[in-house]
Computed example of a mutant assay.
Amino acid sequence: MRNVLWETAIVRFIKCFGQSEARFRLDPKASYDSDAALNSYKFFASLRNKNIIHDENSYTQCMPGAVLNKDGMSHKIAKIICLDVSGTTLEQDNYNNLHLLATDAQKWVSGQFDKLCDIITSELEAKPYVELFAMEGITYTAPAADGVHTSRNPK
C-alpha cells in the first residue's frame, strides 16, 4: 500500500508539469530556482516516465532462470522461473525531496494565482455593477461516462 501511495504521489506531482489540452502546464525552470531542485525534479520525472508508467529502466526487472535437478535425475531442468525485482525508491531522502518540490511548486503557483487575482480584481472593479451583474455565472456540469474520451477544452 505504501508503494502504491508513493507512486501515485509521484504521478500526480509530475502530471502538473505535463502536456494537457485542458489546463495550464507548470514549467520546472520557472518553479525552481536551483540546479539541485531541477535535478531532483528530473529524477522524479524520469522515475515516473521510465519506471512507474512505462517500465523502461532498471528499477524493475524480470529475470528468467532455470532450476536444475540434482545430477542423476531423469530431467536436468526442474522448472523455469522468473524473478521479479523492483528497486526501492521510497526512502527518506526521496520522500523529503518530493515534499520540498511539491511545496515549492505550490508556493510558486499560489504566488502566480495571487498576482492574477489582483489583476482580475482591478479589471472587475473598473466595471459598473450593471455590467458585472450581466456576466455569466459559474456553472458546473457533473461528468458523465461518455466524457472520459474527451478533453475539457478540445482544440
Score class of each variant (00 low, 15 high):
S46H: 11
T88K: 08
I80H: 08
T103M: 04
N153S: 11
Y140M: 04
Y140D: 07
S20Y: 01
G72K: 05
S74P: 15
L5I: 09
D114M: 03
K155A: 11
N39F: 08
G111S: 05
F44Q: 00
Y59R: 07
Q112W: 02
R25S: 13
T60P: 06
A37Y: 02
L100T: 04
S58E: 13
G111M: 01
K79V: 11
Y32P: 00
K15D: 13
V109K: 00
S86E: 15
G137Y: 04
V11D: 02
A9C: 08
F17W: 02
S122G: 14
A134P: 04
A105D: 00
D71L: 15
D146V: 07
D35A: 12
H99Y: 07
N57T: 03
D146G: 09
Y140E: 08
D146Q: 11
I52Q: 00
S86D: 12
S46V: 07
I80E: 14
C82E: 14
V130D: 14
T8N: 08
N69S: 14
R12D: 08
R48N: 01
A78F: 07
C117D: 11
N97Y: 05
V4E: 09
E7R: 03
V4C: 10
A45L: 13
A105F: 00
M73N: 15
K79E: 15
G65M: 05
V11H: 03
D93L: 07
A30N: 13
S58N: 14
E131D: 15
Q61F: 03
C16Y: 05
A37K: 06
T88R: 06
D71S: 15
I120H: 06
A144W: 03
V4P: 10
K70Y: 15
A37S: 13
L90V: 13
E21F: 09
T121W: 02
D35V: 08
I77R: 10
D93Y: 04
K107N: 12
G18M: 09
L116H: 07
W108C: 03
A22C: 08
S122Q: 08
G65Y: 03
G111K: 01
E123Y: 03
A66Y: 13
Y41D: 00
P143I: 03
E131Q: 14
L83D: 15
L116R: 09
S40T: 03
D55E: 12
T103F: 12
K79I: 10
S86I: 10
A78Q: 09
P128C: 06
T89C: 12
A142T: 06
